[in-house]
Design a protein around this nucleic acid. Structure first.
Lengths: 298, 298
DNA sequence: CTTCTGATTTTTATAAGTAAAAAACAATTG
DNA sequence: CAATTGTTTTTTACTTATAAAAATCAGAAG
């Protein structure tokens, strides 16, 4: 953003919105700091946007008193296009696209320079993104050599699921210990209904499942929030999302089975059948693991 | 390294070593590729070192045949000093030093630029290091603002220990299921001896404990290796190391207690007393957690 | 003396450029 | 023709430079 002052432009647009919605011509405007906080930028940037407004004639200044002089129109907004993303986001989008579309497959090597060229930015930005992304454990590099997509092998899946198993079981246990009065139980009940609602219509609505899945696991974790567990879930989610791109065909079947399994787990939980819920969860995790393994390019 | 051709220099030194130890004057040398592989560098670099040797007169070339012409002496080696570290390592050393010496405390903000100046390198290198380091969850930054050392609060410790507890208990369970014939049991026995050996002399030998601790946890994990678990242990180790710098006084006491607890756990494990070992481990983890909390700057 | 403003300094995000190293290519030799 | 060499191209690791944004500072105004 720094070379192209997008933050400034966004601020201008945001300020125009605020002026339009909350002030009328003749009103005095609040202090720089107030505006800066409102726009969620530094005072320097807020100041620059105000100066710009003055230049454009929307605001006049008498001493240090800022007054709204004219109402801005649509045409005064800066156009916000795709390029307004930070370079970082641009790289991210490009890279995820590549791997989600199978352009980069497990075992493949790729260079920073090439990515930089493709995503129209410089190597530093690319490299910084890749370093950040490497926390997912899907790519790695050794000094002076290119990055490599790690092999997505059986062992990787096993280890991933080992930890997932531990965490999910722990979440379940924490959840089951919640007092009856906690709102979690109502949320769980509501979630059951949502599942039951789409269950008979999976033929058409199977693509709604991922959202439910997300909800379910978030709810489970909410019983005992833990930043390390959440972090790990980011990895799981990504690996799933990443991996199933190659196997769109079986998606409907997979989701249908999963909905049933979720219903099973949640029902048992609501009946306070800890043992039953554990077994159902165990089964669910195994299904997921096996299906991942079957899809995997091993 | 790139500006100062350290890899080249290291290669020269390595090749000199090889020549001295494995060849005599008059010997023909193997192919570029063979040498490159041996030096663990690309052929280009290997080639450059060979060319340098020719320039220096140690090697002569007839057509494409390389022959050792003179034996190198000590004085021909490149001096390898501290600056031979990659910039990256230099930043790492500097930064860890800062936080381990309490120069940067929880909650503190710090700038990339300052670190760059202090560690005598540029902001890009610093930033890349910080991004990599941020996986430990101890620092964070939001766009356009400085980095911040996260608060090391009770919740952080609790969450850390929650996961640690899960992992350790799982490791224990995996270990206990190992067949009697596995070498792990002998290693465990040996480890018990090591503990018992220093136990009566903790007054002087308390500083030997961290190594034992490391060994113990590595051994436990070896029963069921898992990259995610190992990764998490890196965090734990670092947090410990980091944190206890501020409380050197109680180190002896802490370690003395810990040695006893380890002995307790290992003994129970060797007796195949799973229940007893679990309880002992539970106690050990609690001690550690409490001691961390007491030290913590909350 | 707190809040605000205007001016100044620092820092971040990004670009452009480059020596060193790696990789790819093409010619050659055994 | 497989392995090796000499040559060329590409990439990485790093430096320097700078517009944009943030942070700081010193007065001014309430």
């Amino acid at each position: 953003m720094s070379r192209k002052n997008f933050l400034f432009q966004k601020s201008v647009n945001a300020l125009l919105d605020i002026l339009k919605n909350e002030y009328v011509v003749g009103d005095n405007l609040p202090s720089d700091l107030t505006i800066a906080n409102r726009l969620d930028v530094s005072r320097s940037t807020a100041r620059k946007t105000i100066d710009y407004m003055i230049e454009q004639g929307f605001i006049v200044k008498l001493g240090s008193q800022k007054t709204l002089y004219a109402m801005p129109q649509k045409s005064h907004y800066f156009a916000v296009n795709k390029q307004s993303m930070s370079k970082d986001k641009q790289v991210e989008e490009h890279f995820l696209n590549l791997i989600l579309n199978g352009k980069i497959k497990p075992g493949d090597r790729f260079s920073e320079l090439e990515l930089a060229r493709q995503s129209n930015c410089n190597t530093v930005t690319v490299r910084e993104f890749l370093i950040r992304f490497s926390r997912f454990g899907l790519i790695e590099k050794s000094p002076r050599s290119q990055w490599q997509m790690k092999n997505f092998d059986e062992q990787f899946v096993d280890e991933l699921y080992e930890v997932r198993h531990l965490f999910e079981m722990y979440s379940l246990s924490s959840f089951m210990q919640l007092e009856e009065t906690k709102p979690h139980w109502q949320q769980l009940e509501a979630l059951l209904l949502e599942h039951q609602e789409i269950e008979p219509h999976m033929e058409e609505r199977f693509h709604e499942f991922p959202k439910l899945d997300q909800k379910f696991h978030t709810l489970m974790q909410s019983a005992q929030p833990n930043q390390f567990v959440s972090q790990f879930y980011d990895i799981i989610s990504f690996v799933f999302h990443y991996h199933y791109q190659w196997d769109r065909n079986s998606e409907k079947d997979r989701n249908t089975v999963a909905v049933h399994e979720h219903i099973d787990i949640i029902s048992k939980m609501l009946m306070k059948d800890y043992r039953g819920a554990t077994l159902a969860l165990e089964k669910h995790l195994n299904t997921a693991k096996e299906s991942l393994k079957n899809t995997a390019i091993l």
